[in-house]
């Protein structure tokens, strides 16, 4: 693995907690690596398993489901 490996991570964030937390991290200026691509969902429970499998199949290096 090269030194410059930049993983692409798909993040499914629950609107009421993880997404709100993500917003709060911004308000608090907490710094973290820019590799995650956030997708807002109304509940982490709405993330269909197929979405996760397909994301990985299509090239995502990781999937985060946060809720």
């Amino acid at each position: 693995m090269s030194q410059t490996f930049e993983p692409v991570i798909i993040g499914f964030l629950c609107n009421w907690c993880a997404y709100a937390g993500g917003d709060l991290a911004g308000v608090s200026r907490l710094q973290y690596p820019p590799n995650m691509r956030p997708i807002r969902v109304m509940c982490s429970g709405m993330v269909h398993p197929d979405l996760v499998v397909n994301a990985l199949r299509k090239g995502a290096d990781g999937v985060l489901v946060m809720g």
Partner: peptide
Amino acid sequence: NIRNQNAWVHQQDREKATEKAKD
């Protein structure tokens, strides 16, 4: 959401933040 979940949390890395914003 390119502010709370991007500009504000990737202040050290303009280039990658811009790439993320495009995405």
